[in-house]
Amino acid sequence: MIDLRQAAARRLRSWAARRFGTDVLPHPVDRRRIYILPSGFGLALAALIVAMLIAALNYNSNLSLAFAFLMTSIALVAMHHCHRNLLGLVVDAETNADGFAGASAAVAFTLTNVSGLDRYDVQIRCAEDAVTAANVAGISRRAVIVRVPLVARGVRRLAQFELATRYPFGWFRAWTYVQAVVTLHAAPSPAGEREAAGASRTSAQTLSGERSGDEDWAGLRPYAPGMPLKHMAWKVLARSEEAAVRTYSGPASEPEWFDWHALPGLAAEARLSQLCRWVIDADRAGRTYGLRLPAASVTPASGPVHRRACLRALAAHDGEAAP
């Protein structure tokens, strides 16, 4: 039964993908693309209504019949309301999401409700086990994070996601498919004990975090999200309400290269995990680093954007192409 349903859902998904092509985000939900079917609870209600009708007709009781028809009509009205709960909702998504293998990627969606109607229990579903429900008030916008589990390292493309609702009574399930590609970058899970060759001289200091303020002091830079908090100039923040970070010159700022070829004797995935470990440690320490892979390299830099570029390069590494 479950298999049958899943098979039907698969066929419907692929049909919808062929029929409607790719959607442009942000995508307003169109009424022609909302599907609706009774849920298990709805089927139970249908059985109840049939029992009501039989009882009322058999006892020839006009009032019971009226009540049974009222229930029928409430179900029909509920169906329209369920359908409407998705209608006209505008959905937008970040087209890239990052994470580590074995953990999950947080895909960021935005639901915009341009009508004055509150919408409840709108579910965004990226995969069987990646569903988040949200309520969106009338004329408002709401960010929804769906955590998609990442099983293995690599780049995965989600060709579509699903918006669904069971509101108001759980009798019906309305859903629609949005054909938009979300790329999931699953970096290798960081692991490994080796030391990076180019970082041996300063790594002990860096990792221990014991830095005397005057040694390599190079001045203040405005704070940007992702910069290490331990370099935060708290006194400056307290004085001027401007967040700043201390920067340091000296050997630690020298670009280090994390090189695929500097890790002989390790299997491909283990190498990637080690490289990932280095990238994360270096980023946490606020150092400048570069990444060299057989098919790609990232020029040295620092900061969150750079870190992401490195992790994506690690995620995209193609094992087949490696020497």
């Binding site: 007709l57 006892y59 020839n60 019949l65 028809f69 009222l70 029928t72 409430i74 029909l76 009205v77």
Partner: peptide, 22 residues
């Protein structure tokens, strides 16, 4: 929802064929 269901219920009640025999 109940109010929106009323007109439908009235139509069903008026025109739904009745049994002559139980």
């Amino acid at each position: 929802i109940v109010l929106q269901a009323m007109p439908l219920a009235v139509i069903l009640w008026l025109f739904f064929p009745r049994l002559t025999e139980p």
